[in-house]
């Protein structure tokens, strides 16, 4: 985080969803955003760019959001990066799995920009 500016990594295999999340982030004042189309791509971006906050989908080809979370948490360099899971999955077992993988918060799609804002603020207060 340089000069209080947070760089977000938005991970989703759907370009439409990436655009919606980025649009919502810009609307709430976050303009420094990097995109990735799946977990693998996200990991590559994480090594090549300075990322402060990850917003990831769960179901993606190549590497899921859950696998990405586990990979990030197992790397001491990135273990404390906030991760917000944004997914269509809202079953009990899904939330438990995500929490066990150590996501910081969880949003069920479809979501409003307001919910996204609240969750980001909630995470930033605790990290």
């Amino acid at each position: 985080m340089e000069d209080g500016k947070i760089r977000f990594l938005v991970v989703d295999d759907s370009p439409t969803m990436r655009r919606i999340v980025i649009n919502a982030l810009k609307n709430i004042g976050y303009t420094d955003i990097v995109e990735a189309e799946d977990g693998k791509d996200a990991l590559a971006k994480l090594y090549s760019e300075k990322i402060d906050f990850i917003i990831t989908d769960w179901n993606m080809p190549n590497m899921t959001g859950l696998e990405l979370t586990r990979a990030v948490r197992s790397d001491p360099n990135f273990a404390n990066i906030p991760i917000l899971m944004v997914t269509t999955r809202g079953m009990k077992q899904d939330v438990i799995e995500a929490l066990e993988a150590r996501v910081n918060n969880y949003i069920v799609k479809p979501f409003t920009p307001q919910v996204l804002k609240e969750k980001i603020e909630q995470i930033l207060k605790t990290v």
């Binding site: 295999d13 179901n59 997914t87 079953m91 949003i107």
Partner: peptide, 22 residues
């Protein structure tokens, strides 16, 4: 597509009930 790349139970629910439960 890889089974992990989609959620067969995905649904469009704007009531906010799921988010509330989560």
């Amino acid at each position: 597509r890889n089974v992990a790349s989609f959620n067969p139970d995905a649904e469009y629910d704007r009531t906010g009930a799921k988010q509330k439960a989560v």
